[in-house]
Design a protein around this nucleic acid. Structure first.
Lengths: 138, 138
DNA sequence: TGCAAACTCTACTAATATACTAGGGTAATA
DNA sequence: TATTACCCTAGTATATTAGTAGAGTTTGCA
């Protein structure tokens, strides 16, 4: 299941991508427009900023803005920052690999190879979808 | 992330599918062979039995056995029984649909359509993979 | 026939982690 | 000085992953 965090994060990013120019947009504005708890959104946007996806400006006229063009922001990147691994098990994760403690041999694990397939098909979608793609599909 | 419950469940099913004939296999046998906590496995197999995937026999010589041929057991079914929805959000789930409380219009939701794509590609794999497929891939 | 062993089945309990909410105060900027 | 992002803390709820204890059922043997 996708956490609200990731869902809200993607929604906020598409909202920012649809703003005219690159003027900073206030958290409160995004929160009310997208029906998101403002405090929660605050921490999400902060995470996205630390990941280099968003920039911010304090004080009057401040807010958040995209650091890159919308068609250069891959959903796979956003997903990994907010949700974590795209793979369904650590032992099939490319970026967050961990060995299973119950599996002596990964190649002999019936679930392992299946989850590699699932990972690849999901990855194929998320790596090839940008913010721009998402907006145009609405 | 896939829960251990589902992972163990699939492992147990492949173990049963690899047994000769259809003699009942004891929980303890599966648990030690697959490095699974026996008590945990107990509740998992019970769930699979109630879902009509496994049969059981009590008393001496008892245990669990497959109710159908291995090539008639789809992973998608097992997944839904143990893990729940295959979709990453309730609003794109076929079998567990629920409306999002924050979305006034699903078609206008940037995440919605993306997650339909992810669901379909995952579903395509899980619906077309049976226990037999999993075993042959080891 | 009756007892004991070998099983599954059920119900509690609990530790741990994670998701989400809510509040306060601080720092930077116009 | 007002406005806004930033940061810290703590609480609540829920799911996961077990562990414990015992009840119920079947088989085989004396």
């Amino acid at each position: 299941m996708l956490s609200r965090k990731t869902k809200y994060g993607i929604k906020a990013l598409t909202f920012l991508a649809q703003q005219d120019g690159n003027e900073p947009t206030q958290i409160s504005h995004i929160a009310t427009s997208e029906n998101i708890s403002q405090k929660f959104l605050e921490s999400i946007l902060l995470t996205l900023r630390k990941a280099g996806i968003l920039g911010s400006k304090k004080g009057k006229g401040g807010g958040y803005y995209l650091l890159k063009e919308a068609d250069n922001i891959k959903i796979a990147h956003v997903y990994r920052v907010l949700e974590g691994p795209i793979a369904m098990m650590p032992c099939v994760s490319l970026n967050f690999y961990e060995k299973c403690d119950d599996c002596p041999d990964e190649d002999a694990c019936s679930v392992h190879n299946l989850m590699i397939q699932v990972r690849d098909s999901t990855l194929n979608i998320l790596e090839n979808t940008t913010l721009t793609d998402i907006i145009s599909e609405q």
